[in-house]
Amino acid sequence: MILDVAYIFIAGATIAYMAHLIKGTPLLGRLGSGLSFAALSFLTIGLTIRTVEAGHWPLSNSYEFSLAFVWSILLMYLILERWMGIRGPGAFVLPIALLIVTYAEVLAPEWTRVARPLLPALKTTWLQLHVTTAAVAYGAFAVSCGAGMMYLVRETVPHLPENFLSSTVIDEFNFRALALGYPWMTLVLITGAIWAQIAWGSYWSWDIKETWTLATWLLYTLLFHLRAIRGWRGKPIASLSILGFLFVLFTFLGSGWLARHVALQSLHLY
């Protein structure tokens, strides 16, 4: 019920931010922020209740992670919105949160929605550290993807509303989202390696999920290096921000499929 309310708030915030972008009415922007904050609050309550019910942090399956992911997108976005004092990117970021919460509510396997006790393999503090860092990094990269899309719209679509943010501001917003996400993504690799060593005696096994996480990190590393080359800022960085988030989504949702159909086995399949 609480999560359903959060879902409605996210949908409402998406509409409000889009209307704010088109009409330029500050009130609509503030409404978007308010609804996002309300959604974040309801998600926090929902996730806390689930933590109490299950006896562990809600990070043990795709449904729970999706909710943590959306929670992180909202938190990262609201931090950046406050930090930069702009609301325009919400029209591009909130739809991503809406898509992921829709996946959680509609497409996630039914059994994952029931709070269950942890499997013995997942009983460790490293689960919380590793998966929480992933949720935070993914959230920041989702915000970066939204900013990337906004940048490309700014650069390619003629006759935009007057209040549409300038390329420089969008690029700066994107950079701040990336600068938030990248250290957390690095922590995902570090905490994952430590957990793998403690669990399996091997800090790196070339497991498909590990490899895709490393590939995602490499892609963002590539982005930062490219940004340092004159003439490569702007569209290439915006495009890579979108591609990077597609890598994130694939690591989250697609690598399990790849592990089952290609690798024949994976340490990350439970």
């Binding site: 590939a215 290096h225 690598s255 290609v262 024949l264």
Partner: peptide, 28 residues
């Protein structure tokens, strides 16, 4: 040069992704 870094990172990225498309005979 950073350009070389970018080229090498791109190549390594592609190779790593290629590795996920085939079952790898890992050391384990």
């Amino acid at each position: 040069s950073i350009r070389l870094t970018v080229i090498l990172l791109s190549a390594i990225l592609l190779i790593f992704l290629l590795g996920t498309l085939f079952p790898q005979l890992t050391w384990e």
